[in-house]
Design a protein around this nucleic acid. Structure first.
Lengths: 226, 226
DNA sequence: ACCTGAACACCGTTCAAGT
DNA sequence: ACCTGAACACCGTTCAAGT
């Protein structure tokens, strides 16, 4: 009953439609809906995740934040998980950038510690994103090839660093991939456990923990033969 | 086997759970509801988690599996998170047992590797539980003192082992808590990354990875001075 | 081609009420 | 004291329909 009377159509007359060419919206501040809703959704999702926490990362909430209907995201993402994966991908890219910047500012053997510090710092500065990147929802990435490629980039980055140190004679010979996996495990575990507050009693200074950890990784915990 | 509904009839309502004579309700002529619904809920939750995955760990689903109404769990758990915490607690207890068994079967310096193997094996044999134990829902445990105590037990256990090795002159001196945190980080990261398939390309054998990792932890990756 | 509105089946949580 | 039934406000997802 109410339907036909109370619902007035908005000003969608043809005369109002700007002569938008095919190229993506650029000058339009916000005429109608985005030329790139996909990107807008990923951005909204990331913002929501940071400001409201992981529980706020709902498809409906993100759609709301982006100003579209709840069904609209399905034009761009197969399901909620695909949207989450897109957020994680962006995170992996930023993590890689942070590590890259670290080695560039401190090349050679010193780079190892610089990367470790940058890695742990990234996790602590982006806790919600970090958790999503390694969370259970994306545990099996077999059906998310784009994410898989991006996340594999981290291991590849570390392995490359290991090879460099091996070539410089600083690090023992051996499978660089395995050594890199061990290093990454260490860093990842450190971020996770500290985010969880599991190692809170150990020290007040995270930097100190990273320091101890990287030293241990470098020289081991076995006592040298006297 | 993706995340789908897969609604199965689930004929679990047969005369389940033989009434334990130990519980207070003994003269119960009615086979009505458990003298210990709390325990039954935790058990149902764990079973659901293992068989159907993390998405099945819903309060309503658990209540259904236990044969009570959807509101009944609220007599025993403040909210869904409290139930999840109870499941995680049980997991931490079993993890500790597995580690304890490992040191007992291989005491001394060899115990280090035995514990590492037992730890990683636990994670891989109980992936869903392991993820819950360290998942984002329980990230901040400040309001879950029981869980906090149980999970802290793991770090304490490792630290105790480190102290033993230090006393035996096998491990370098230094803050045992920090060294333990580094060791735990390594093991935790290894479990997580391998469960996520992030280090799948490195080796086909997880045992080999654990082997390399523990050696690295023991002797470091720095090349000895020639 | 892209988006909306409405619907369906689920969920966490609350609360009066039953026994 | 412990549990049920019904309700509320959310979800993810689908689908016919609009422009």
């Amino acid at each position: 009953m109410l339907t036909s009377l109370t619902y007035l159509p908005m000003l969608t007359l043809s005369t109002h439609i700007p002569s938008m060419p095919k190229s993506p919206a650029r000058s339009t501040s916000k005429p109608y809906h985005h030329g790139d809703l996909r990107d807008a959704l990923v951005r909204s999702a990331t913002e929501l995740l940071r400001s409201e926490g992981p529980d706020a990362l709902t498809l409906r909430g993100v759609a709301r934040a982006a100003g579209v209907s709840q069904a609209a995201p399905y034009r761009h993402f197969a399901d909620r998980r695909a949207l989450v994966a897109a957020v994680a991908e962006e995170g992996f890219r930023r993590l890689r950038s942070a590590m890259l910047e670290a080695v560039q500012s401190a090349p050679g053997p010193l780079g190892f510690k610089a990367v470790a510090v940058a890695y742990v710092r990234f996790g602590h500065q982006n806790p919600a994103e970090y958790r999503i990147m390694f969370g259970p929802e994306l545990g099996n990435q077999d059906d998310l090839p784009a994410l898989q490629t991006t996340s594999r980039g981290v291991l590849e980055f570390v392995a490359e660093g290991v090879r460099g140190l091996q070539a410089a004679g600083v690090v023992v010979e051996g499978d660089a991939g395995m050594i890199a996996a061990a290093l990454w495990s260490m860093l990842h575990g450190l971020v996770m456990l500290s985010l969880d507050g599991q190692v809170a009693g150990v020290t007040t200074s995270l930097d100190e923990l990273v320091e101890t950890t990287t030293k241990l990784m470098m020289f081991g915990m076995a006592r040298r033969a006297v």
